[in-house]
């Protein structure tokens, strides 16, 4: 055994706070693996995804859910998706590679991102101060995802429940992103 131990630190140390009508919390233990579909390999990927997860390749801007509900696939572009699932360790890539075999190219993305959930009846009011995407529940229902920019930072956003959104932004700028969200919440309350 090594004399040194490695401890995983979430980007925001497991932040959680509640405000009047809005709750903001860091989502830890979420794994993100990017899956690139090889040129001409759409059919093979569609089959692999169906066989392993019982779901289809999400179109860009849409998500699909594994039949056990545990893994969500975010359509990032026409040839790239992110698999998002609960996983505590750093071996998430092996999980996806094990399931989808050589149907895709896989890159570990878990630590690239900080994940925050903003929820509550006033979550849209707060987000409308920084998010250019139309978050109206009819325009942006569950099953959609968007990658955009908020306060100069790239952000991936998707609704995961009624009045609840998951936000993924670069882990190195997690502090600034949290500050932007907290400021937005302060400004509407």
């Amino acid at each position: 055994m090594s004399e040194y131990t490695m401890t995983a630190l979430p980007a925001l140390g497991g932040y959680q706070a509640s405000f009047d009508g809005v709750t903001l919390q860091e989502v830890t233990a979420t794994a993100i693996v990017s899956i690139a579909i090889p040129l001409g390999g759409d059919d093979a990927m569609a089959k692999a995804l169906q066989d392993a997860y019982g779901t289809a390749i999400p179109r860009a801007g849409h998500t699909s859910l594994a039949n056990d509900g545990a893994t969500r696939f975010l359509g990032m572009s026409s040839e790239q998706m992110f698999a998002v699932f609960d996983h505590a360790g750093a071996h998430a890539l092996d999980v996806i590679a094990g399931n989808l075999k050589d149907a895709g190219y896989y890159t570990l993305q878990s630590d690239n991102w900080v994940a925050l959930r903003i929820s509550g009846p006033r979550s849209r009011d707060a987000l409308e101060r920084i998010c250019p995407i139309d978050l109206n529940s009819a325009a942006f229902p569950q099953g959609k995802v968007a990658r955009t920019t908020m306060e100069h930072l790239g952000v991936i956003i998707y609704p995961d429940d009624t009045d609840s959104f998951i936000l993924l932004s670069g882990s190195s700028s997690a502090g600034s992103f949290l500050h932007a969200l907290e400021t937005s919440i302060h400004n509407i309350l």
Binding site: Y4, T5, M6, T7, A8, L9, P10, A11, A90, L108, S110, D111, N112, S171, S172
Partner: peptide, 17 residues
């Protein structure tokens, strides 16, 4: 290089080592 979540641990381990 280690996954970013272990970066803090690694710098402390390297300095200690």
């Amino acid at each position: 290089a280690v996954p970013a979540r272990y970066g803090d641990s690694l710098i402390r381990a390297l300095m200690a080592a």
